[in-house]
């Protein structure tokens, strides 16, 4: 058998290359371009090297936004992952109720971000919002426009409401794949409920949990729409997360150079932390030689 080398076949890849070039690489290069140049309009660019990067890295405002962002993502993961697992463990395994609860759980996931923001904006209003006015009637001084803690609490509860279902559904899928024999062996070996969770359920959920953690980290780290709609980044700048700040800088102040440099670093930070999560979670137990069973 001869295999003829036909390099013309490479032309078949061309459409994809063009598409990716236009949709991803060109826009990204524009950002790269802005990050290393200064401009005063008229498409006249001046090379400034790493000047914008230095400016952004030294900026106090950026440090604060990054810190807020890290705290926010950490809280989100710390709540949603355990809560998602806990809910998945309590769901019925089969039957009508299983399907029904799955549909109910999936509902928040289908609501667009800005609608979620609007819902919670209205929900927490002191004058007409159900939650806000109830709290006010109970004598709780709740005002997310004035109190940073109220604003944070609202954003966190909203995100938990919106996204815990995702973790739950992923974990549920992982749990469903555990053969009944494992639970039977656990009962034979007189394992406690905790031991069953720790040594049977958790190991089998490891794969889906990795996905859940990565998705929830990336999403929460890039959160924009909801704080923009609910708090507008306030009070003050207490809920100004990285994305919110980036948009302020790029569109509000039209500082395209620093904003571009900021964008690139933002992207790299997400990549870096995701990589750390991935590496840590896949190396949690050594000797990972998967054998198909």
């Amino acid at each position: 058998m001869f295999k003829t080398q036909n390099n013309k076949a490479w032309f078949l890849v061309l459409p994809v290359l063009l598409l990716v070039g236009f949709s991803a690489i060109l826009p990204l290069m524009t950002v790269v371009n802005y990050a290393f140049n200064d401009t005063f309009g008229n498409n006249a660019f001046f090379w400034v090297g790493l000047e914008w990067f230095r400016e952004v890295i030294r900026s106090e405002r950026m440090h604060d936004a990054l810190q807020r962002q890290l705290i926010f993502s950490a809280i989100i993961l710390a709540i949603e992952i355990p809560l998602g697992i806990a809910i998945a463990l309590t769901l019925p395994k089969r039957g009508v109720w299983a399907s029904l609860t799955l549909v109910l759980l999936a509902l928040p996931l289908l609501i667009p971000w800005n609608v979620v923001g609007t819902i919670w904006q209205l929900f927490t209003r002191i004058d007409i919002g159900l939650l806000g006015s109830t709290l006010a009637a109970l004598g709780v001084d709740f005002n997310l426009g004035r109190d940073a803690i109220d604003a944070w609490a609202t954003l966190i509860v909203m995100d938990v409401w919106h996204w815990t279902s995702l973790v739950t559904l992923l974990c549920y899928a992982g749990l469903q794949s555990i053969p009944e024999a494992y639970y039977q062996a656990g009962r034979i070996d007189q394992a406690s409920r905790w031991a069953v969770f720790r040594y049977i359920e958790l190991p089998k959920m490891q794969g889906v949990l990795l996905i859940a953690v990565l998705l929830r980290f990336m999403d929460s780290f890039m959160i924009y729409t909801e704080p923009f709609v609910v708090t507008g980044g306030g009070p003050g700048s207490t809920t100004t997360f990285l994305s919110v700040d980036l948009v302020k800088m790029a569109i509000g102040q039209f500082d395209l150079g620093p904003a571009a440099a900021f964008s690139l670093m933002y992207f790299l930070v997400i990549l870096l932390i995701s990589w750390v999560f991935y590496t840590v979670m896949t190396n949690l137990d050594q000797e990972k030689e998967e054998v198909p069973e």
């Binding site: 034979i188 070996d189 394992a191 040594y199 049977i200 190991p203």
Partner: peptide, 29 residues
Amino acid sequence: PTAERNIAQVFQFPVVYDTMTVRENLAFP
């Protein structure tokens, strides 16, 4: 319940606790 009966049972297809070592598996009960 099974746990109270103090019975050992070996199934047709192997059930081992993947994340444990062989020693931990044997020590589990």
